[in-house]
Amino acid sequence: MFRWIVVRDLTLAWKSRVDVLSTLFFFLIVVSLFPLGIGPETNLLRLIAPGVVWVAALLASMLSLGRLFANDYQDGTLEQLLLTPQPLYLVVLGKVLALWLVSGVPLALMSPVLGIQFGLSGNTLFVLVVSLLLGTPVLALIGSIGAALTLGLRGGGLLLSILVLPLYIPVLIFGSGAVDASITGMGLQGSLSLLGAVLVLSLVFAPWATSAALRISLE
């Protein structure tokens, strides 16, 4: 049953792939704007690269949250998902996994191309990808709580950013911290461990909170 949720959402994402791609383009464009705006100062670019890439990833993840529940809510399939004979926790987890596969993973895989624009070395590019692969599922998990809470509200998108961005701050700090540590040749184990800890914690708690929020929003 869990597999069906992932398959379903991946199929739907494929059918509306323009939406999915636009999130990735957003990420690409935002990150590319910085070298254009700042100029070719390589040292400066290398200095700001972790922060810029990570902030852009945060914003792109937040934008992709709109797709998570809103469409299903409108056509009534979300009601049907709530009535499937399995824990809602797993339903949410499946939907978040599908969202991450079409937004977080391509975003992480695309990041080396952007890193090169900022003059990052090969080793740092690898750390960037790893940190994004660890961090973007957290963004999707935490974001799902906000998406469920703001379901069907007027001004939902703006409200979503107010709710979700503060909760994203730890991921931003640890994620860009890991990349930063790699640039300066310092131990990055600390940042990556903390990122891992946040990931495990949000895997345990976020789907539960999202399930509760969905039940509340659909009543």
Binding site: R8, T11, E79
Partner: peptide, 8 residues
């Protein structure tokens, strides 16, 4: 609402 996905 029918609970159908329009795209499918």
């Amino acid at each position: 609402r029918n609970g159908l996905k329009e795209e499918l």
